[in-house]
Simulated assay, not measured.
Amino acid sequence: MSNLADISLFLRVVDHKSISAAARSVGISPALASKRLQVLESNLGVRLLHRTTRKVSVTPEGLELALKGRHLVEDLETLTSDLKQVTKEVSGTLRITAGVSFGRVFISPLLPQFLQQHPKLKIQLNLSDETSNLIDSGYDLAIRISSSLESSGLVAKKIISNKRILAASPDYLGKYGSPKTLEELAQYNCLILASGQGREDFLQLMDQKGREHKVKVQGTLESNLGDALYQAALSGLGISLHSEWHIKEDLEQGRLCHVLPEFYKETSIYAVMPQRQFVPLRVRAFTQFIEQQLNKL
């Protein structure tokens, strides 16, 4: 059976793209690291790395080990660490991905407080409106806003409900008027979100009685970035659909106006993580922290 430490060393080579750098990260010599990797390959009966004098590259078999073995190594390390510690400490590196707007407005401002509570923790935050593959990208946690999450072998925990509403600038409504019915929305310039979850040119909205309504819309701008549509709406380009929290201040200050307030889109904010039996303590702690903070709003 291959030594867990040797598999962990191999994963460091994959991450650092260098045997020497991986060796330094664990405090051993490159020669010893190379020898341990050769033993690992011998035990497994496959070549994991192509080595030249200038670089190392990962073989297909090595990629498979990195993909399937990383979480096994992390799970076992987490388990043994938790069992050894009398007092558990949140430590290590927490890799998070979240949408740009939500990450900017809510996640980023909360990170200093969480890091102050857990001084042995490091955080890597990636903000993108594109849906990343958590396992392939090496993320511990994703914060996603969706009406429903497709089954993908991931664990999704609902944190809080999220209402999205229609809005436009006073200038746009002053020039073109405000739609009186949902059907009239098809005659206006609508700013369309086009992301990995699809194009929102066919809106499915709820009324105050919980009945669902559908309308086909069109417009001169579509983007995978919600902030781009937000800026366009502020500039008077058209009507767009935004999370209530995103435009709350703009509505209060009169920079945007609520359009067709009797209709909304019900979504939720989820904490999504790879489906593993042993969720790292850092992930559990941050998920609980975010849930507590959001429910204070």
Results as ranks from 00 to 15, higher is better:
residue 275 Q to P: 06
residue 193 L to Y: 09
residue 236 G to P: 01
residue 198 G to A: 12
residue 185 L to V: 03
residue 269 I to V: 07
residue 276 R to D: 08
residue 245 W to H: 10
residue 234 L to G: 06
residue 175 K to R: 15
residue 181 T to A: 05
residue 185 L to D: 05
residue 253 Q to P: 02
residue 206 M to R: 06
residue 181 T to Y: 11
residue 181 T to V: 11
residue 172 Y to L: 11
residue 219 G to T: 00
residue 179 P to G: 09
residue 174 G to L: 04
residue 161 S to L: 13
residue 220 T to G: 01
residue 261 P to V: 04
residue 233 A to P: 09
residue 178 S to R: 10
residue 193 L to M: 05
residue 171 D to S: 02
residue 275 Q to V: 04
residue 254 G to H: 08
residue 216 K to V: 01
residue 255 R to D: 07
residue 190 C to F: 07
residue 256 L to P: 14
residue 199 R to I: 14
residue 268 S to M: 03
residue 282 R to A: 10
residue 201 D to H: 05
residue 234 L to E: 05
residue 253 Q to D: 02
residue 263 F to Y: 02
residue 245 W to F: 15
residue 221 L to E: 00
residue 270 Y to C: 08
residue 240 S to D: 06
residue 160 I to D: 06
residue 242 H to V: 04
residue 276 R to H: 12
residue 218 Q to G: 15
residue 223 S to A: 10
residue 206 M to Q: 11
residue 269 I to T: 08
residue 215 V to N: 00
residue 186 A to Q: 09
residue 211 R to A: 13
residue 277 Q to F: 04
residue 208 Q to W: 07
residue 178 S to L: 09
residue 274 P to L: 11
residue 266 E to I: 05
residue 284 R to N: 13
residue 287 T to S: 14
residue 283 V to W: 00
residue 248 K to L: 14
residue 210 G to K: 15
residue 214 K to E: 15
residue 240 S to K: 09
residue 245 W to Q: 02
residue 219 G to Q: 05
residue 276 R to F: 08
residue 267 T to G: 05
residue 195 S to T: 15
residue 169 S to E: 14
residue 219 G to I: 00
residue 250 D to I: 13
residue 226 G to S: 07
residue 194 A to D: 15
residue 199 R to L: 15
residue 223 S to C: 07
residue 269 I to G: 06
residue 199 R to H: 15
residue 232 A to I: 00
residue 175 K to L: 11
residue 194 A to M: 04
residue 228 A to E: 12
residue 220 T to W: 01
residue 271 A to H: 06
residue 250 D to Y: 06
residue 185 L to Y: 04
residue 215 V to W: 03
residue 210 G to A: 14
residue 205 L to N: 03
residue 250 D to S: 12
residue 278 F to N: 12
residue 167 A to N: 05
residue 249 E to R: 12
residue 283 V to K: 11
residue 160 I to C: 00
residue 280 P to F: 04
residue 240 S to M: 05
residue 230 Y to D: 11
residue 172 Y to D: 12
residue 283 V to Q: 08
residue 208 Q to D: 01
residue 176 Y to W: 13
residue 197 Q to T: 07
residue 166 L to S: 02
residue 193 L to T: 09
residue 287 T to M: 14
residue 198 G to M: 05
residue 282 R to L: 12
residue 262 E to P: 02
residue 171 D to R: 14
residue 208 Q to C: 13
residue 196 G to N: 04
residue 221 L to R: 08
residue 209 K to W: 00
residue 236 G to K: 10
residue 232 A to S: 13
residue 172 Y to I: 06
residue 181 T to H: 13
residue 216 K to T: 03
residue 174 G to S: 13
residue 224 N to H: 01
residue 283 V to D: 03
residue 222 E to I: 07
